[in-house]
Computed example of a mutant assay.
Amino acid sequence: MPTTTKSSRARVACRTAFILTLLIFLALAAALVAIQLAGLVLLQPSWITWASDTLLTPSIAAAVLFGLVAFIGGYFAAEEPAGD
């Protein structure tokens, strides 16, 4: 199997993982903020506490996973030709 095919597949896999982990992180973080904001507006402190207790750790874990995928994906990024 040619090297270009392997690197192309790796690039596609990393890009897919990058987008997937980004969407998961953004969904969790947006849900956390939305629920806390709704709890604040509707004067429901239990919502704020629940959102923090339930969604904060998964949001941070998803952000870490996203960062790792982005770091690893940097090794498979297409190289730009150096032209002066």
Rank of each mutant, 00 (worst) to 15 (best):
D84H: 06
L68Q: 05
W47T: 10
L43V: 10
S52D: 15
A34I: 07
F18C: 00
S46V: 09
S7Y: 03
A63R: 07
F18K: 01
D84M: 04
A51E: 08
V33N: 03
Y75N: 04
G83V: 11
L23W: 07
L26N: 02
A77N: 04
T3K: 01
L23N: 06
A29E: 13
L28Y: 07
A70I: 14
P81R: 10
L42P: 00
I72A: 11
M1W: 01
L26M: 07
W50H: 08
E79W: 04
T4A: 03
L22F: 08
T57E: 09
K6C: 01
T54R: 12
F18L: 02
A30T: 13
D84S: 08
T49H: 12
I24M: 04
F25R: 05
I19K: 06
V33F: 08
A17T: 06
L65A: 11
S8M: 02
G73K: 08
L37D: 13
L55D: 13
L23C: 05
S52T: 14
T16C: 00
L32M: 11
T49Q: 14
S46E: 13
L23Q: 07
V33S: 07
F18G: 00
C14H: 03
T57H: 06
V64F: 14
A82Q: 09
T3D: 04
T54D: 06
V64Y: 05
L42S: 13
L42M: 12
R15F: 07
A27S: 12
Y75L: 10
P58A: 14
A34P: 00
A27P: 00
A13W: 02
A61S: 12
R15K: 03
T49R: 14
V69W: 06
L26K: 03
L40D: 14
L68G: 06
L65V: 15
G67R: 12
R11S: 06
A29T: 11
S7I: 08
K6T: 09
C14D: 03
L55H: 10
A61I: 15
G67C: 15
A30H: 05
V69R: 07
L22R: 05
I35Y: 13
F71N: 01
Q36P: 01
A61H: 04
